[in-house]
Amino acid sequence: MALLGVGTLAALTVGGWALRGRGKPAAQETVLPTVTAANAYDRQCQTYYEGADGALYWVFAAFSPAGSDGENCPNGYRSQLIAAGEESWGPLTLYAYDAVTGKNAREAFAPLVEDWQVTASAQEGDACRIVMEDADYSAGGAMYAREHIATSLCGRNEITWTLHMRNGDTVTLTQVEEYGERPAVDYRWENEDMTTPTALQALLDRAAEETEPEDVVTVYLPAVTYDQPLHVRRDMNLIGDGTVLTGGLVVEPLAYGDDKEVCVNVRDVTFAGDGGVGLQVMGPTWVQGCRFTGWDVAAQALDGGWICSQENTYDSNGVALDLDSGSAMLCGSNMNNSRFLRNGVAIRVKRLPVEWMTLDLYDCSFYGNTVDLDDPQGLVVRR
């Protein structure tokens, strides 16, 4: 069967896509939706393919399970700035749609494929690493997927998808990624005034104002107890060292960028409360090595926010983790190695940011909670 590239189809019609069937008169042409590929990258990551079953398929690659509007769409190029020494994980996904109906057709297309692979080759810099285990993004409509790992040293990479069809055809799609290093700006308690909540808040505000959006901002906190609420208004790292927050922390909505991950990282901080909310986020927030105790709600994600909990302890709170976010840029869909002890409710899930998403708990322990999971929609999976 024939592999019909975007350029080939474009030559067959004016004002839309058309494919003439074998022996069909012009009146019976199948008219396809117009492909609006604005650049060469998006043209190279998609194609039309007439399968051995006689159906016409639209096959394309992307870098995510779904677009911001929840729809899958071709994506042939992405760029990202990554902090030195850090890794960025992300999905590579491939889709098959019925070109006539516009519906996902992976179940019909997959039996036509004998084998497939996806590779990364460095045109400049180091090659991205492809995680060879299957990544399951089927809930988001993907037919095939892999996780891949990049660093700032990866430079420019070409991602190549190769489908070997049972009838001997080969389908090839390509994507391009470019990576660079994010500049680092550090604020250390040895050099900055962080002795009071007022002083620390002034520093956090100044850091948001005087740094560039692409900067990696890290604030190294002292062994001080802060008894007033603190607010973070840009993506940054907050690294504690004997730091205690009794007034709580609020992550305000963050400005997203197309070429960098946006996330607030909070590490090694003790949240010790007497009621109220310990950590409230309206932006993606990664929390690691922290302890929460004594709060009505220890950690809460609202619209625009998400909490990725790693190696934390939630002890003696009304609700330990309250997830009520209908939209957010995710910094991970897993909760790993966290302990939930003697809480009223350990994890309450009201909404998750993506419709098809589940919350996966890996190596999390529960002891003495009145309710471990308040999850009426069945969105939590314990691994």
Results as ranks from 00 to 15, higher is better:
C308K: 12
N334G: 06
C331V: 09
L323Y: 08
V319T: 15
Q300P: 06
C331S: 08
D303P: 10
R339W: 08
V297I: 15
C308D: 10
W306F: 11
A328D: 03
S309L: 15
L323F: 07
S333E: 12
D322N: 13
A301G: 09
T313I: 15
C308N: 13
D296I: 04
Q300L: 13
F340M: 06
D303L: 06
D315Q: 13
T313P: 01
N337M: 10
R339G: 08
C331P: 02
F340Q: 01
C331F: 04
S338V: 00
N312W: 00
V345N: 00
L330E: 07
T313F: 07
N336M: 12
L323K: 00
A328T: 00
N312H: 05
N312E: 06
G326S: 12
L321M: 11
L341V: 15
F340C: 00
W306N: 06
A298W: 00
R342G: 07
A301Y: 03
D322Y: 15
L341D: 11
G318P: 01
S309I: 01
A298C: 08
V345M: 01
D322W: 15
I307D: 04
N334T: 11
Q310P: 04
V297E: 09
D296A: 14
L302M: 14
L302E: 15
N312F: 03
S338L: 01
V297C: 11
Y314I: 07
S316F: 06
R342L: 12
R339F: 07
V319I: 15
N343K: 03
G304P: 03
A320T: 00
N343Q: 02
